[in-house]
Design a protein around this nucleic acid. Structure first.
Lengths: 136, 136
DNA sequence: AATTTTACTTGCAAAACGAAAGTAAAATTA
DNA sequence: TAATTTTACTTTCGTTTTGCAAGTAAAATT
């Protein structure tokens, strides 16, 4: 099987998103922690600055990975959701999680190691379950 | 199947690497373009600044994803290689490539689209082939 | 009506970035 | 062997980004 790229592969085009740690953290929290609001993102243990969080949410929205909306009875709180394009990023984040679990495992709880082992066994099943959770 | 994380998943620990676009470009060029030297990395179309390239190569070495060596008969040119830890990052870069190909395809050559379709059909086979290339 | 919450904005010092020029060791060329 | 070129950086400095901390206005709660 010959995998040969004749021109630059398009990875560089996505680097404004995945080459930014705060954007990745937001996507992680949306995908794996079910977070939806500015306050929830702000409360992550990594302590993102509020001006940076604002900036990254705007960038993710402008590049079509998330949308910003409101609940019908609440004009104040923004609700952020992943778009289809954003949900399609799940395999990337899943592989990042698995890589981290394997290579940075001195920082990983035993509980998370077990979950990662289950995911490793059947990535497709995991992604299917997560997709259906996020599609709500 | 219940995938439930009881504590923070370890993604944030890896963000110094994958949350940096220049590091990702270097890893891409090593994995998919077979690049090994400072000059080759420097010649990528994204035009990384030489002081930044130096900095990122040092960071990747210090975090154990690449090694820096020389050829036996050449004391001048540095040869960079992926470590096992670095090669394990292949699935992440593969998913990034597939995501880019799907969502940024107006920038993607027809040739690369065909290659991406082949990869999508059998990711495991692709990763196996690439691993054996890189393990040399 | 008063207070709290939410999602920001602002000011500013520090850090990072990146263009461009320079440098020294090592290789190549004449 | 001397001159030139190549390689992998380092340095300078202006610009941009980051991030802390305080402030703000609209909306919700008390």
């Amino acid at each position: 099987m010959d995998y040969k790229f004749r021109s630059n592969c398009p990875i560089s085009s996505v680097l404004d998103i995945i080459g930014d740690k705060w954007s990745l953290l937001i996507l992680r929290d949306m995908m794996f922690a079910g977070k939806k609001t500015f306050g929830e993102f702000s409360s992550s243990s990594e302590k993102i600055a509020t001006n940076i969080l604002t900036d990254r949410l705007q960038t993710l929205e402008q590049t079509g990975l998330i949308t910003k909306g409101k609940l019908p009875d609440n004009k104040k709180t923004n609700i952020y959701k992943l778009t289809e394009k954003g949900i399609d990023f799940l395999p990337v984040m899943t592989e990042v999680m698995l890589w981290s679990n394997k290579h940075l495992n001195e920082h990983v709880s035993e509980e998370n190691q077990k979950v990662a082992a289950m995911i490793q066994k059947d990535k497709e099943a995991f992604i299917k379950v997560m997709r259906s959770r996020l599609a709500d």
